[in-house]
């Protein structure tokens, strides 16, 4: 009896410790999941308010009221994006609100971001083309289709995340075929491995080729007018006769904190203040 008591008393603290650990783990998990669920709810509320504000703006009759509501709607969509919403639809919504308030720079930036997430987003592509027509004729815009896009047509049909998922699936199936071929040598495994390897390469190669061709980050000018300079100094000579308008698209050649050297899509290079620029990878 006493031996049993000793055993029980000896096991007790260890059992309680493990129970505490389990409860602590459950608590931490609960806090983490609860926090993320709360954040998701906040995002949904913000988006809902943004949609409602946009719809009110569409109904508003006075111009100043309409402008104020569109601006508010853009702000709400931005807020949701900053909180973690990441998809082409919300980027397009935000860009639409910006276009309604005649903020061409922010609109073009938003549509470009939407197309980065989903190149097949028809509305973003169409509105981007429309927003570009608001720019002066001499402002160069990127070529919308290249060799890779024409030859590898599926790049237009799939978003990059879908493309990555499909490629990973093909890789897994090719690996399965290879494993079969290694364990039980025969034609079936080899054929499976070959077909899915080719598909995997086909899905990833265009992106890789594109990346080899152009790896510089892209951006859009959002300041109403930006004087492009020939050097990274405020009093450096202007590079062009006209200031660059909001919505001018470019590639970043060099980043020196306060100044960026950019390359326009006609190959011309200039320096612009970093404050006038919105890179596409910025939330």
């Amino acid at each position: 009896m006493s031996q049993h008591s000793r055993l029980i008393s000896g096991l007790g603290p260890a059992r309680y410790t493990s129970t505490r650990a389990i409860w602590a783990a459950l608590f931490i998990l609960g806090v983490l999941f609860g926090d993320s669920a709360m954040a998701a709810d906040e995002i949904r509320d913000t988006i809902e308010e943004g949609i409602e504000t946009y719809q009110r703006a569409m109904r508003a009759e006075r111009r100043d009221e309409r402008m104020a509501l569109f601006a508010r709607s853009e702000h709400l969509f931005s807020d949701a994006i900053e909180r973690g919403a990441r998809n082409a639809s919300i980027e397009t919504n935000r860009a639409n609100a910006a276009l309604q308030t005649a903020r061409t720079g922010h609109a073009i930036w938003g549509y470009r971001r939407a197309l980065e997430i989903d190149p097949s987003h028809t509305q973003a592509r169409r509105n981007l083309e429309q927003a570009r027509t608001r720019l002066p004729d001499w402002v160069s815009t990127p070529e919308s289709s290249g060799f890779a896009d024409t030859f590898f047509f599926w790049r237009q049909a799939l978003s990059p995340s879908e493309l990555r998922l499909w490629a990973a699936g093909c890789f897994a199936l090719a690996a399965l075929g290879l494993a079969i071929a290694l364990i039980r040598p025969g034609l079936t495994g080899r054929l499976i491995a070959l077909i899915f390897s080719l598909l995997w390469i086909g899905l990833l190669a265009p992106g890789w080729i594109e990346q080899q061709k152009e790896s510089r980050p892209a951006g859009v000018l959002i300041a109403e007018e930006t004087i492009a300079r020939s050097a990274d100094a405020r009093h450096a000579p202007p590079r062009f006769t006209e200031p660059l308008p909001a919505g001018t698209e470019f590639l970043v050649v060099e980043d020196r904190q306060a100044w960026l050297e950019i390359e326009l899509h006609n190959g011309r290079r200039a320096w612009v203040p970093a404050s006038a620029v919105a890179p596409l990878n910025q939330p």
């Binding site: 995002i43 949701a80 919403a85 998809n87 919300i90 397009t92 509305q123 429309q130 927003a131």
Partner: peptide, 17 residues
């Protein structure tokens, strides 16, 4: 020619990475 309607599907809009 711009389509300035917005997507109102909150599930789709709230999609996170």
């Amino acid at each position: 020619d711009a389509d300035l309607s917005i997507d109102v599907q909150i599930d789709r809009l709230a999609l996170q990475k």
